[in-house]
Computed example of a mutant assay.
Amino acid sequence: MFGWLKRLFGIAQAEANSALDKLEDPVKMTEQGIRDLKTDLTKSLQGLAEVKALHIKEKRELEVAKKASTDYEQKAVLLLQKAESGSLDPQEADRLASEALARKQQVDTRIQTSMKNVTNYDQMVTKMEGNVQKLKSQITDWENELKTLKARSTVSKATAKLNKQLSNIDSSDTLARLERMKQKVSEQEALAESYGDVAQLSGNTIDDEIDKALGGTAATPGIESEALKQLKAKMASSKPNQEASSSDNTENTTNTSSGESEAPSNGTASTGNSELDKLKQKLRDQE
């Protein structure tokens, strides 16, 4: 039972540490460290100022005590001199001189204490100033480190984002999209071409077909098309046969002058031949 609880506690502790590791941000931790250092620096500067104030006060008191000691000694000497000169009772002079020397002794004792305090304050001030300089230097180093960390963090985040985007690219899917696009464009081009053919067919007239048969351009006066030249050559080659046929028809007409005539078998064909004969005659006249 206890082993199971111990294992469960270990798993929970591991998960908690993992979560804390994920929450740890070097930049934020460095910023917090700098804030803590600045707080310590402020406290150190305040303590240094207080110690320096005590040091200055103690030094001033020491100077005052030294002066007082000197004054008491000088006063005792003057009292003794007055006693020797007779201007002061010797006993009174000795009493007052003894009192002055006693006061001097008290002042000297205080001077010794003040000197020790001044020495201690000197050491404290030197030590605190060293700590303050160390804190300032450390804050400067950490601020520079923070700038570097911020720059590295920015670069690493941008690189991670770019790599993530690149890793999610599916080359096969991209190629498939390109192929589908090519196929769609090809189908659209074919459809456009077919619509063009349909439009061309629906817009053709009999005149367009004739012009196409004549080589794409209509015949103009003074300029013979290739088709017209071929037609003239063909008609020229068949002209002797037509003349022979015409003479035979003349003879047949003479022989049947008694009134007998042959009726045309097809009125439409006769009309068409008549128009064609007129065209042929017109071409012969042009020649």
Rank of each mutant, 00 (worst) to 15 (best):
I111Y: 03
I111V: 15
Q112M: 10
Q112V: 15
T113W: 02
S114A: 14
S114G: 13
S114D: 12
M115S: 13
M115V: 11
K116G: 10
N117P: 00
N117S: 09
V118P: 04
V118W: 01
V118M: 06
V118K: 05
T119V: 07
Y121E: 05
D122N: 10
D122R: 04
D122G: 12
Q123T: 12
Q123D: 09
M124E: 10
M124W: 05
M124T: 08
M124C: 04
M124A: 13
V125F: 00
V125T: 08
T126A: 14
K127Y: 08
K127L: 12
M128N: 07
M128A: 11
M128D: 09
M128R: 09
M128K: 09
M128Q: 12
M128I: 07
E129I: 01
E129M: 06
E129N: 07
E129L: 06
E129V: 04
E129F: 00
G130A: 14
G130Y: 01
G130D: 09
G130M: 06
G130N: 08
G130W: 00
G130F: 03
G130Q: 10
N131S: 15
N131L: 15
V132W: 02
V132C: 08
Q133D: 13
Q133F: 01
K134S: 13
K134W: 05
L135I: 06
L135K: 08
K136W: 00
K136N: 07
K136D: 07
K136S: 09
Q138N: 14
Q138I: 07
Q138H: 08
D141A: 15
D141E: 14
D141Q: 15
D141P: 04
W142G: 05
W142Q: 13
W142N: 15
W142Y: 12
E143Y: 02
E143Q: 15
E143M: 07
E143D: 10
N144F: 06
N144R: 10
N144W: 04
E145F: 04
E145T: 15
E145V: 06
L146T: 02
L146P: 03
L146H: 02
K147S: 11
L149N: 02
K150G: 04
K150A: 04
K150Y: 01
R152M: 08
R152D: 13
R152S: 11
R152K: 15
T154P: 01
V155D: 10
S156W: 01
K157L: 07
A158G: 09
A158I: 10
A158C: 05
T159Y: 05
T159R: 11
K161P: 01
K161T: 14
L162R: 13
L162C: 03
N163T: 10
N163P: 03
N163S: 12
K164M: 02
K164Y: 00
K164V: 00
K164Q: 08
Q165C: 03
Q165F: 03
Q165M: 10
Q165V: 08
Q165A: 12
L166W: 02
S167V: 01
S167C: 00
N168R: 07
I169H: 03
I169F: 05
I169W: 00
I169A: 05
